[in-house]
Design a protein around this nucleic acid. Structure first.
Lengths: 247, 247
DNA sequence: TATCTGTCAATACACTGTATCGGCAAGAGA
DNA sequence: TCTCTTGCCGATACAGTGTATTGACAGATA
Protein backbone atom coordinates (compact mmCIF):
# COMPACT_ATOMS: atom_id res chain seq x y z
CA UNK A 1 0.00 0.00 0.00
CA UNK A 2 2.77 2.45 0.92
CA UNK A 3 4.09 4.10 -2.18
CA UNK A 4 7.41 4.95 -0.64
CA UNK A 5 10.41 3.02 -1.89
CA UNK A 6 12.11 0.64 0.49
CA UNK A 7 14.96 3.00 1.10
CA UNK A 8 12.67 5.46 2.83
CA UNK A 9 10.45 3.07 4.72
CA UNK A 10 11.38 2.23 8.32
CA UNK A 11 11.67 -1.38 9.38
CA UNK A 12 9.52 -2.99 12.05
CA UNK A 13 10.56 -2.01 15.53
CA UNK A 14 12.71 -4.96 16.52
CA UNK A 15 10.50 -6.54 19.07
CA UNK A 16 12.55 -8.92 21.22
CA UNK A 17 12.24 -12.27 19.54
CA UNK A 18 13.92 -15.66 19.85
CA UNK A 19 15.41 -15.01 16.40
CA UNK A 20 15.78 -11.27 15.81
CA UNK A 21 15.35 -10.01 12.29
CA UNK A 22 16.29 -6.96 10.30
CA UNK A 23 16.52 -5.87 6.73
CA UNK A 24 20.26 -6.33 6.82
CA UNK A 25 19.97 -9.86 8.10
CA UNK A 26 17.46 -10.67 5.42
CA UNK A 27 19.40 -9.28 2.50
CA UNK A 28 22.67 -10.78 3.64
CA UNK A 29 21.01 -14.16 3.99
CA UNK A 30 19.52 -13.74 0.54
CA UNK A 31 22.90 -12.76 -0.86
CA UNK A 32 24.50 -15.78 0.74
CA UNK A 33 21.93 -18.03 -0.88
CA UNK A 34 22.27 -16.33 -4.26
CA UNK A 35 26.04 -16.52 -4.18
CA UNK A 36 25.90 -20.20 -3.39
CA UNK A 37 23.19 -21.38 -5.72
CA UNK A 38 22.11 -18.59 -8.01
CA UNK A 39 19.02 -16.43 -7.96
CA UNK A 40 16.76 -19.49 -8.01
CA UNK A 41 17.75 -20.17 -4.44
CA UNK A 42 16.34 -16.84 -3.36
CA UNK A 43 12.76 -17.43 -2.39
CA UNK A 44 10.93 -16.03 0.58
CA UNK A 45 10.55 -19.50 1.97
CA UNK A 46 14.23 -20.34 1.65
CA UNK A 47 15.49 -17.00 2.89
CA UNK A 48 13.16 -17.20 5.86
CA UNK A 49 14.19 -20.76 6.56
CA UNK A 50 17.83 -19.68 6.56
CA UNK A 51 16.88 -17.26 9.33
CA UNK A 52 14.74 -19.71 11.27
CA UNK A 53 11.61 -17.75 10.54
CA UNK A 54 8.35 -18.23 8.76
CA UNK A 55 8.10 -16.91 5.22
CA UNK A 56 5.43 -14.36 6.00
CA UNK A 57 7.60 -12.72 8.60
CA UNK A 58 9.70 -11.17 5.85
CA UNK A 59 6.80 -9.09 4.61
CA UNK A 60 7.17 -6.80 7.56
CA UNK A 61 10.61 -5.81 6.35
CA UNK A 62 10.16 -6.06 2.63
CA UNK A 63 6.94 -5.46 0.78
CA UNK A 64 7.61 -7.54 -2.26
CA UNK A 65 10.24 -9.79 -3.71
CA UNK A 66 11.41 -7.16 -6.15
CA UNK A 67 12.18 -4.96 -3.19
CA UNK A 68 14.36 -7.67 -1.72
CA UNK A 69 16.20 -7.93 -5.03
CA UNK A 70 16.61 -4.14 -5.09
CA UNK A 71 18.15 -4.27 -1.65
CA UNK A 72 20.52 -7.02 -2.74
CA UNK A 73 21.62 -4.99 -5.75
CA UNK A 74 22.22 -1.93 -3.63
CA UNK A 75 24.29 -3.95 -1.21
CA UNK A 76 26.57 -4.93 -4.07
CA UNK A 77 26.93 -1.32 -5.14
CA UNK A 78 28.01 -0.63 -1.61
CA UNK A 79 30.88 -3.09 -2.00
CA UNK A 80 32.36 -1.26 -4.94
CA UNK A 81 35.10 1.14 -3.94
CA UNK A 82 34.92 4.54 -5.63
CA UNK A 83 37.82 5.78 -7.74
CA UNK A 84 40.34 8.01 -5.93
CA UNK A 85 39.34 11.62 -6.33
CA UNK A 86 42.78 12.33 -7.75
CA UNK A 87 42.12 10.12 -10.72
CA UNK A 88 41.70 11.58 -14.18
CA UNK A 89 38.66 10.70 -16.17
CA UNK A 90 40.33 7.76 -17.87
CA UNK A 91 41.73 6.11 -14.77
CA UNK A 92 38.54 6.90 -12.94
CA UNK A 93 36.33 5.21 -15.49
CA UNK A 94 38.69 2.25 -15.72
CA UNK A 95 38.51 1.91 -11.97
CA UNK A 96 34.72 1.95 -12.01
CA UNK A 97 34.59 -0.55 -14.85
CA UNK A 98 36.78 -3.00 -13.02
CA UNK A 99 34.92 -2.41 -9.82
CA UNK A 100 31.71 -3.56 -11.42
CA UNK A 101 33.37 -6.48 -13.10
CA UNK A 102 34.98 -7.62 -9.88
CA UNK A 103 31.74 -7.28 -7.97
CA UNK A 104 30.01 -9.43 -10.55
CA UNK A 105 32.72 -12.02 -10.16
CA UNK A 106 31.76 -12.26 -6.50
CA UNK A 107 28.01 -12.07 -7.11
CA UNK A 108 27.16 -13.43 -10.52
CA UNK A 109 23.47 -12.80 -10.01
CA UNK A 110 24.14 -9.07 -9.89
CA UNK A 111 24.18 -8.88 -13.66
CA UNK A 112 20.82 -10.63 -13.88
CA UNK A 113 19.15 -7.89 -11.90
CA UNK A 114 19.88 -5.11 -14.33
CA UNK A 115 16.76 -5.24 -16.43
CA UNK A 116 14.33 -5.40 -13.54
CA UNK A 117 14.27 -1.77 -12.70
CA UNK A 118 16.76 1.09 -12.60
CA UNK A 119 19.12 1.04 -9.65
CA UNK A 120 18.14 3.88 -7.37
CA UNK A 121 19.19 2.71 -3.96
CA UNK A 122 21.43 5.01 -1.94
CA UNK A 123 24.56 3.03 -2.70
CA UNK A 124 23.74 2.88 -6.39
CA UNK A 125 23.20 6.61 -6.45
CA UNK A 126 26.46 7.42 -4.71
CA UNK A 127 28.18 5.02 -7.05
CA UNK A 128 26.71 6.90 -9.97
CA UNK A 129 27.57 10.21 -8.39
CA UNK A 130 31.23 9.40 -7.87
CA UNK A 131 31.41 7.93 -11.36
CA UNK A 132 30.02 11.08 -12.90
CA UNK A 133 32.20 13.23 -10.69
CA UNK A 134 35.35 11.51 -11.87
CA UNK A 135 34.75 12.85 -15.36
CA UNK A 136 35.38 16.55 -15.14
CA UNK A 137 34.45 17.69 -18.60
CA UNK A 138 32.99 21.15 -18.93
CA UNK A 139 30.08 20.02 -21.05
CA UNK A 140 27.71 18.01 -18.86
CA UNK A 141 26.28 16.21 -21.86
CA UNK A 142 29.72 14.93 -22.68
CA UNK A 143 30.07 13.67 -19.13
CA UNK A 144 26.81 11.82 -19.37
CA UNK A 145 27.69 10.46 -22.78
CA UNK A 146 31.05 9.16 -21.69
CA UNK A 147 29.81 7.59 -18.48
CA UNK A 148 26.79 6.13 -20.21
CA UNK A 149 28.86 4.54 -22.93
CA UNK A 150 31.34 3.05 -20.52
CA UNK A 151 28.60 1.69 -18.30
CA UNK A 152 26.74 0.22 -21.24
CA UNK A 153 29.88 -1.49 -22.46
CA UNK A 154 30.74 -2.79 -19.01
CA UNK A 155 27.32 -4.23 -18.36
CA UNK A 156 27.16 -5.83 -21.78
CA UNK A 157 30.64 -7.26 -21.58
CA UNK A 158 30.24 -8.59 -18.07
CA UNK A 159 26.92 -10.15 -18.94
CA UNK A 160 28.54 -11.86 -21.89
CA UNK A 161 31.31 -13.20 -19.71
CA UNK A 162 28.95 -14.55 -17.13
CA UNK A 163 26.73 -16.13 -19.74
CA UNK A 164 29.70 -17.87 -21.28
CA UNK A 165 30.92 -18.98 -17.91
CA UNK A 166 27.56 -20.48 -17.04
CA UNK A 167 27.39 -22.30 -20.33
CA UNK A 168 30.79 -23.80 -19.69
CA UNK A 169 29.78 -24.86 -16.22
CA UNK A 170 26.51 -26.47 -17.23
CA UNK A 171 27.83 -27.99 -20.42
CA UNK A 172 30.01 -30.37 -18.48
CA UNK A 173 33.01 -28.49 -17.20
CA UNK A 174 34.44 -27.76 -20.61
CA UNK A 175 37.02 -25.29 -19.52
CA UNK A 176 38.13 -22.73 -22.06
CA UNK A 177 37.87 -25.16 -24.91
CA UNK A 178 34.15 -24.59 -25.05
CA UNK A 179 34.37 -21.74 -27.51
CA UNK A 180 36.95 -23.75 -29.38
CA UNK A 181 33.99 -25.65 -30.78
CA UNK A 182 34.53 -28.68 -28.62
CA UNK A 183 30.78 -28.95 -28.25
CA UNK A 184 29.71 -31.55 -30.80
CA UNK A 185 26.82 -29.43 -31.98
CA UNK A 186 29.05 -26.49 -32.73
CA UNK A 187 31.48 -28.76 -34.51
CA UNK A 188 28.74 -30.02 -36.77
CA UNK A 189 27.54 -26.51 -37.47
CA UNK A 190 30.99 -25.29 -38.35
CA UNK A 191 31.50 -28.36 -40.53
CA UNK A 192 28.65 -27.23 -42.75
CA UNK A 193 30.91 -24.53 -44.11
CA UNK A 194 28.24 -21.88 -43.74
CA UNK A 195 30.20 -20.00 -41.10
CA UNK A 196 33.71 -19.57 -42.48
CA UNK A 197 34.60 -16.43 -40.54
CA UNK A 198 33.22 -17.85 -37.34
CA UNK A 199 35.18 -21.04 -37.90
CA UNK A 200 38.30 -19.02 -38.47
CA UNK A 201 37.72 -17.14 -35.23
CA UNK A 202 37.21 -20.33 -33.30
CA UNK A 203 40.25 -22.06 -34.70
CA UNK A 204 42.74 -19.25 -35.04
CA UNK A 205 41.95 -16.81 -32.32
CA UNK A 206 44.57 -16.80 -29.63
CA UNK A 207 42.77 -14.33 -27.40
CA UNK A 208 40.70 -16.40 -25.03
CA UNK A 209 41.40 -14.68 -21.73
CA UNK A 210 38.18 -12.92 -20.69
CA UNK A 211 39.93 -10.31 -18.58
CA UNK A 212 42.11 -9.35 -21.51
CA UNK A 213 39.16 -9.14 -23.87
CA UNK A 214 37.34 -6.97 -21.36
CA UNK A 215 40.32 -4.66 -21.20
CA UNK A 216 40.58 -4.45 -24.98
CA UNK A 217 36.97 -3.41 -25.39
CA UNK A 218 37.18 -0.97 -22.53
CA UNK A 219 40.21 0.54 -24.22
CA UNK A 220 38.19 1.02 -27.38
CA UNK A 221 35.49 2.93 -25.57
CA UNK A 222 37.93 5.12 -23.65
CA UNK A 223 39.97 5.78 -26.77
CA UNK A 224 36.82 6.74 -28.58
CA UNK A 225 35.86 9.22 -25.90
CA UNK A 226 39.32 10.74 -25.95
CA UNK A 227 39.36 10.95 -29.73
CA UNK A 228 35.91 12.39 -30.05
CA UNK A 229 36.54 15.07 -27.50
CA UNK A 230 40.08 15.79 -28.63
CA UNK A 231 41.50 14.92 -25.27
CA UNK A 232 45.18 14.35 -24.92
CA UNK A 233 45.74 10.67 -24.64
CA UNK A 234 48.57 8.18 -24.81
CA UNK A 235 48.12 5.02 -26.81
CA UNK A 236 49.22 2.36 -24.36
CA UNK A 237 50.65 1.64 -20.94
CA UNK A 238 51.30 5.21 -20.05
CA UNK A 239 51.14 6.10 -16.40
CA UNK A 240 50.14 9.71 -16.16
CA UNK A 241 46.85 10.96 -17.40
CA UNK A 242 46.43 14.57 -18.37
CA UNK A 243 43.64 16.39 -16.63
CA UNK A 244 40.60 16.41 -18.81
CA UNK A 245 39.52 19.33 -20.89
CA UNK A 246 36.60 19.57 -23.17
CA UNK A 247 37.35 21.27 -26.50
CA UNK B 1 16.81 -37.51 -22.45
CA UNK B 2 18.07 -36.63 -25.93
CA UNK B 3 21.20 -34.58 -25.63
CA UNK B 4 20.81 -33.00 -29.02
CA UNK B 5 19.92 -29.32 -29.09
CA UNK B 6 16.51 -28.32 -30.39
CA UNK B 7 17.92 -27.18 -33.68
CA UNK B 8 18.91 -30.72 -34.61
CA UNK B 9 15.93 -32.59 -33.22
CA UNK B 10 13.03 -33.39 -35.57
CA UNK B 11 9.51 -32.43 -34.57
CA UNK B 12 6.71 -34.94 -34.11
CA UNK B 13 5.37 -36.26 -37.39
CA UNK B 14 2.40 -33.98 -37.90
CA UNK B 15 -0.33 -36.46 -37.33
CA UNK B 16 -3.61 -35.04 -38.69
CA UNK B 17 -5.25 -33.31 -35.81
CA UNK B 18 -8.19 -30.97 -35.32
CA UNK B 19 -5.66 -28.28 -34.39
CA UNK B 20 -2.36 -28.97 -36.12
CA UNK B 21 0.81 -28.00 -34.32
CA UNK B 22 4.38 -27.30 -35.19
CA UNK B 23 7.40 -25.70 -33.65
CA UNK B 24 6.84 -22.61 -35.75
CA UNK B 25 3.28 -22.25 -34.58
CA UNK B 26 4.36 -22.66 -30.99
CA UNK B 27 7.17 -20.11 -31.08
CA UNK B 28 5.14 -17.57 -32.99
CA UNK B 29 2.32 -17.91 -30.50
CA UNK B 30 4.81 -17.51 -27.69
CA UNK B 31 6.32 -14.46 -29.37
CA UNK B 32 2.90 -12.93 -29.81
CA UNK B 33 2.20 -13.41 -26.12
CA UNK B 34 5.57 -12.03 -25.09
CA UNK B 35 5.23 -9.00 -27.34
CA UNK B 36 1.85 -8.23 -25.87
CA UNK B 37 2.43 -8.83 -22.19
CA UNK B 38 6.09 -9.50 -21.52
CA UNK B 39 7.88 -12.72 -20.76
CA UNK B 40 5.58 -13.45 -17.85
CA UNK B 41 2.82 -14.20 -20.30
CA UNK B 42 4.86 -17.02 -21.79
CA UNK B 43 3.94 -20.15 -19.91
CA UNK B 44 3.32 -23.57 -21.35
CA UNK B 45 -0.27 -23.36 -20.26
CA UNK B 46 -0.88 -20.00 -21.86
CA UNK B 47 0.96 -20.77 -25.07
CA UNK B 48 -0.91 -24.04 -25.40
CA UNK B 49 -4.21 -22.34 -24.67
CA UNK B 50 -3.50 -19.82 -27.42
CA UNK B 51 -3.21 -22.79 -29.76
CA UNK B 52 -6.25 -24.64 -28.44
CA UNK B 53 -4.14 -27.43 -27.08
CA UNK B 54 -3.31 -28.97 -23.74
CA UNK B 55 -0.11 -27.82 -22.08
CA UNK B 56 1.54 -31.22 -22.23
CA UNK B 57 1.20 -31.37 -25.96
CA UNK B 58 4.01 -28.86 -26.32
CA UNK B 59 6.51 -31.27 -24.84
CA UNK B 60 6.51 -33.21 -28.05
CA UNK B 61 7.92 -30.22 -29.86
CA UNK B 62 10.01 -28.64 -27.16
CA UNK B 63 11.71 -30.49 -24.38
CA UNK B 64 11.90 -27.73 -21.87
CA UNK B 65 10.89 -24.14 -21.42
CA UNK B 66 14.41 -22.90 -21.95
CA UNK B 67 14.32 -24.52 -25.35
CA UNK B 68 11.22 -22.57 -26.21
CA UNK B 69 12.94 -19.38 -25.16
CA UNK B 70 15.96 -20.32 -27.26
CA UNK B 71 13.72 -20.75 -30.27
CA UNK B 72 12.10 -17.39 -29.65
CA UNK B 73 15.48 -15.71 -29.49
CA UNK B 74 16.60 -17.35 -32.69
CA UNK B 75 13.46 -16.20 -34.42
CA UNK B 76 14.32 -12.63 -33.54
CA UNK B 77 17.83 -13.05 -34.90
CA UNK B 78 16.19 -14.19 -38.10
CA UNK B 79 14.35 -10.88 -38.37
CA UNK B 80 17.54 -8.86 -38.35
CA UNK B 81 18.73 -8.01 -41.85
CA UNK B 82 22.45 -8.49 -42.41
CA UNK B 83 24.59 -5.55 -43.48
CA UNK B 84 25.16 -5.20 -47.23
CA UNK B 85 28.29 -7.04 -48.22
CA UNK B 86 29.61 -3.87 -49.79
CA UNK B 87 29.68 -2.13 -46.43
CA UNK B 88 32.94 -1.24 -44.79
CA UNK B 89 33.59 -2.35 -41.25
CA UNK B 90 32.25 0.83 -39.76
CA UNK B 91 28.98 0.97 -41.69
CA UNK B 92 28.61 -2.76 -41.27
CA UNK B 93 28.91 -2.65 -37.51
CA UNK B 94 26.63 0.34 -37.32
CA UNK B 95 24.07 -1.56 -39.35
CA UNK B 96 24.28 -4.55 -37.05
CA UNK B 97 24.02 -2.37 -33.97
CA UNK B 98 20.88 -0.69 -35.19
CA UNK B 99 19.48 -4.01 -36.35
CA UNK B 100 19.68 -5.34 -32.82
CA UNK B 101 18.31 -2.18 -31.32
CA UNK B 102 15.37 -2.13 -33.71
CA UNK B 103 14.61 -5.78 -33.10
CA UNK B 104 14.56 -5.10 -29.39
CA UNK B 105 12.15 -2.26 -29.94
CA UNK B 106 9.77 -4.78 -31.50
CA UNK B 107 10.46 -7.50 -28.94
CA UNK B 108 11.48 -6.02 -25.64
CA UNK B 109 11.81 -9.41 -24.03
CA UNK B 110 14.67 -10.22 -26.38
CA UNK B 111 17.10 -8.37 -24.18
CA UNK B 112 15.99 -10.32 -21.13
CA UNK B 113 17.02 -13.59 -22.70
CA UNK B 114 20.67 -12.75 -23.04
CA UNK B 115 21.96 -14.13 -19.80
CA UNK B 116 20.18 -17.45 -20.03
CA UNK B 117 22.56 -19.16 -22.34
CA UNK B 118 24.66 -18.21 -25.37
CA UNK B 119 22.75 -17.82 -28.58
CA UNK B 120 23.66 -20.73 -30.81
CA UNK B 121 20.61 -21.21 -33.00
CA UNK B 122 21.11 -21.21 -36.75
CA UNK B 123 19.89 -17.66 -37.16
CA UNK B 124 22.04 -16.41 -34.32
CA UNK B 125 25.06 -18.11 -35.84
CA UNK B 126 24.52 -16.66 -39.29
CA UNK B 127 23.96 -13.29 -37.69
CA UNK B 128 27.28 -13.64 -35.93
CA UNK B 129 28.93 -14.89 -39.11
CA UNK B 130 27.82 -11.95 -41.22
CA UNK B 131 28.76 -9.58 -38.45
CA UNK B 132 32.25 -11.00 -38.24
CA UNK B 133 32.52 -11.10 -42.02
CA UNK B 134 31.76 -7.41 -42.31
CA UNK B 135 34.96 -6.60 -40.48
CA UNK B 136 37.73 -7.48 -42.86
CA UNK B 137 40.77 -6.88 -40.74
CA UNK B 138 43.78 -9.08 -41.36
CA UNK B 139 44.27 -9.94 -37.72
CA UNK B 140 41.46 -12.23 -36.64
CA UNK B 141 41.91 -11.25 -33.01
CA UNK B 142 41.25 -7.66 -33.94
CA UNK B 143 38.08 -8.73 -35.72
CA UNK B 144 36.88 -10.55 -32.67
CA UNK B 145 37.84 -7.69 -30.42
CA UNK B 146 36.02 -5.11 -32.48
CA UNK B 147 32.87 -7.16 -32.91
CA UNK B 148 32.90 -8.21 -29.28
CA UNK B 149 33.20 -4.67 -28.06
CA UNK B 150 30.45 -3.36 -30.30
CA UNK B 151 28.12 -6.18 -29.33
CA UNK B 152 28.84 -5.68 -25.65
CA UNK B 153 28.09 -1.98 -25.94
CA UNK B 154 24.92 -2.59 -27.95
CA UNK B 155 23.53 -5.12 -25.54
CA UNK B 156 24.35 -3.00 -22.54
CA UNK B 157 22.96 0.16 -24.07
CA UNK B 158 19.78 -1.46 -25.31
CA UNK B 159 19.21 -3.10 -21.98
CA UNK B 160 19.56 0.24 -20.29
CA UNK B 161 17.08 1.81 -22.64
CA UNK B 162 14.52 -0.90 -22.11
CA UNK B 163 14.95 -0.80 -18.37
CA UNK B 164 14.39 2.92 -18.34
CA UNK B 165 11.41 2.59 -20.62
CA UNK B 166 9.84 0.00 -18.36
CA UNK B 167 10.40 2.16 -15.33
CA UNK B 168 8.67 5.06 -17.03
CA UNK B 169 5.78 2.87 -18.02
CA UNK B 170 5.25 1.36 -14.60
CA UNK B 171 5.94 4.54 -12.68
CA UNK B 172 2.84 6.16 -14.08
CA UNK B 173 3.47 7.23 -17.64
CA UNK B 174 6.07 9.80 -16.76
CA UNK B 175 7.31 10.42 -20.23
CA UNK B 176 10.84 11.70 -20.56
CA UNK B 177 10.61 13.75 -17.43
CA UNK B 178 11.29 10.68 -15.36
CA UNK B 179 15.03 11.12 -15.37
CA UNK B 180 14.43 14.79 -14.79
CA UNK B 181 13.84 13.81 -11.19
CA UNK B 182 10.11 14.16 -11.36
CA UNK B 183 9.81 11.09 -9.19
CA UNK B 184 9.31 12.41 -5.69
CA UNK B 185 11.80 9.98 -4.24
CA UNK B 186 14.51 11.13 -6.60
CA UNK B 187 13.68 14.72 -5.85
CA UNK B 188 14.13 14.11 -2.15
CA UNK B 189 17.41 12.31 -2.76
CA UNK B 190 18.79 15.09 -4.91
CA UNK B 191 17.65 17.63 -2.34
CA UNK B 192 19.99 16.09 0.21
CA UNK B 193 22.89 17.64 -1.67
CA UNK B 194 24.85 14.42 -1.58
CA UNK B 195 24.68 14.01 -5.36
CA UNK B 196 25.72 17.32 -6.87
CA UNK B 197 26.99 16.00 -10.17
CA UNK B 198 24.00 13.77 -10.60
CA UNK B 199 21.74 16.72 -9.87
CA UNK B 200 23.57 18.77 -12.41
CA UNK B 201 23.12 16.06 -15.00
CA UNK B 202 19.45 15.78 -14.28
CA UNK B 203 18.81 19.48 -14.40
CA UNK B 204 21.15 20.66 -17.10
CA UNK B 205 21.44 17.83 -19.53
CA UNK B 206 19.70 18.56 -22.79
CA UNK B 207 20.39 15.17 -24.30
CA UNK B 208 17.39 13.05 -23.47
CA UNK B 209 16.72 11.35 -26.79
CA UNK B 210 17.62 7.68 -26.35
CA UNK B 211 18.34 7.12 -30.02
CA UNK B 212 20.81 9.96 -30.00
CA UNK B 213 22.49 8.73 -26.88
CA UNK B 214 22.78 5.28 -28.41
CA UNK B 215 24.40 6.78 -31.46
CA UNK B 216 26.85 8.78 -29.40
CA UNK B 217 28.06 5.77 -27.48
CA UNK B 218 28.26 3.66 -30.59
CA UNK B 219 30.36 6.39 -32.15
CA UNK B 220 32.75 6.21 -29.21
CA UNK B 221 33.27 2.50 -29.66
CA UNK B 222 33.74 2.73 -33.41
CA UNK B 223 36.09 5.69 -33.06
CA UNK B 224 38.06 3.76 -30.50
CA UNK B 225 38.44 0.80 -32.82
CA UNK B 226 39.53 3.06 -35.66
CA UNK B 227 41.98 4.91 -33.47
CA UNK B 228 43.45 1.85 -31.87
CA UNK B 229 44.04 0.14 -35.19
CA UNK B 230 45.16 3.28 -37.00
CA UNK B 231 42.38 3.01 -39.51
CA UNK B 232 41.58 5.94 -41.69
CA UNK B 233 38.46 7.52 -40.35
CA UNK B 234 36.51 10.71 -40.75
CA UNK B 235 35.17 12.45 -37.64
CA UNK B 236 31.56 13.03 -38.54
CA UNK B 237 28.90 12.83 -41.20
CA UNK B 238 31.21 11.64 -43.92
CA UNK B 239 29.69 9.34 -46.49
CA UNK B 240 32.44 7.18 -47.85
CA UNK B 241 34.25 4.71 -45.64
CA UNK B 242 37.72 3.61 -46.58
CA UNK B 243 38.16 -0.12 -46.84
CA UNK B 244 39.60 -1.45 -43.67
CA UNK B 245 43.21 -2.34 -43.19
CA UNK B 246 44.90 -3.62 -40.12
CA UNK B 247 48.21 -1.92 -39.39
C1' DT C 1 -6.94 -4.12 34.38
C1' DA C 2 -8.77 -3.38 29.76
C1' DT C 3 -7.92 -1.94 25.22
C1' DC C 4 -5.31 -1.15 21.36
C1' DT C 5 -1.62 -1.89 18.13
C1' DG C 6 1.75 -4.07 15.66
C1' DT C 7 4.09 -8.49 14.59
C1' DC C 8 3.99 -12.99 13.32
C1' DA C 9 2.41 -18.08 12.00
C1' DA C 10 -0.85 -20.78 9.54
C1' DT C 11 -3.56 -21.43 5.91
C1' DA C 12 -5.02 -20.77 1.29
C1' DC C 13 -4.99 -19.42 -3.68
C1' DA C 14 -3.54 -19.10 -8.15
C1' DC C 15 0.14 -20.14 -10.81
C1' DT C 16 4.47 -22.21 -12.52
C1' DG C 17 7.40 -26.30 -15.02
C1' DT C 18 7.23 -30.94 -15.71
C1' DA C 19 6.93 -36.44 -14.45
C1' DT C 20 3.83 -40.02 -14.81
C1' DC C 21 0.29 -42.69 -16.49
C1' DG C 22 -3.52 -44.28 -19.25
C1' DG C 23 -5.95 -44.24 -23.42
C1' DC C 24 -6.55 -43.72 -28.27
C1' DA C 25 -5.88 -43.76 -33.02
C1' DA C 26 -3.02 -44.71 -37.08
C1' DG C 27 0.10 -47.89 -39.34
C1' DA C 28 2.28 -52.63 -39.70
C1' DG C 29 2.20 -57.56 -39.89
C1' DA C 30 -0.36 -61.79 -40.33
C1' DT D 1 -9.76 -58.22 -41.74
C1' DC D 2 -7.96 -58.76 -37.17
C1' DT D 3 -4.46 -58.00 -34.00
C1' DC D 4 -0.51 -55.55 -32.26
C1' DT D 5 2.63 -52.08 -31.82
C1' DT D 6 4.00 -47.42 -31.75
C1' DG D 7 3.76 -42.67 -30.99
C1' DC D 8 1.03 -38.79 -29.59
C1' DC D 9 -1.88 -36.55 -26.42
C1' DG D 10 -4.89 -35.39 -22.17
C1' DA D 11 -5.58 -35.75 -17.35
C1' DT D 12 -3.73 -35.84 -13.16
C1' DA D 13 -0.28 -34.98 -9.81
C1' DC D 14 3.71 -32.89 -7.41
C1' DA D 15 6.75 -29.68 -5.69
C1' DG D 16 7.61 -25.13 -5.75
C1' DT D 17 6.62 -20.06 -6.26
C1' DG D 18 4.74 -15.04 -4.55
C1' DT D 19 1.49 -13.21 -1.69
C1' DA D 20 -3.61 -12.19 0.48
C1' DT D 21 -6.13 -13.31 4.37
C1' DT D 22 -6.99 -14.50 8.92
C1' DG D 23 -6.42 -15.02 13.65
C1' DA D 24 -3.71 -15.17 17.72
C1' DC D 25 -0.62 -13.29 20.88
C1' DA D 26 2.44 -10.07 23.15
C1' DG D 27 3.80 -5.44 24.58
C1' DA D 28 2.50 -0.63 25.14
C1' DT D 29 -0.93 2.54 26.54
C1' DA D 30 -5.11 4.32 29.08
Amino acid sequence: MSNEPVWERPEPSGKPSPTPLSRDLIVSAAIRLADAGGLDEVSFRKVAAALNAGPMRLYGYVETKDELLDLMVDEVYGEITPPPSSAGWREGLRHVAHGIRDATKRHEWFIDLLSNRPHQGPNALTHLETTLATVRFDDIDQVLGAVGAVMAYVFGAVRGEITELRAERSSGMTEEQWQRASGPYMQRMLATGRFPTLARVMHESSDTDPAHRFEIGLGYVLDGIATRHNLAWRPAGSASEPSAQSP
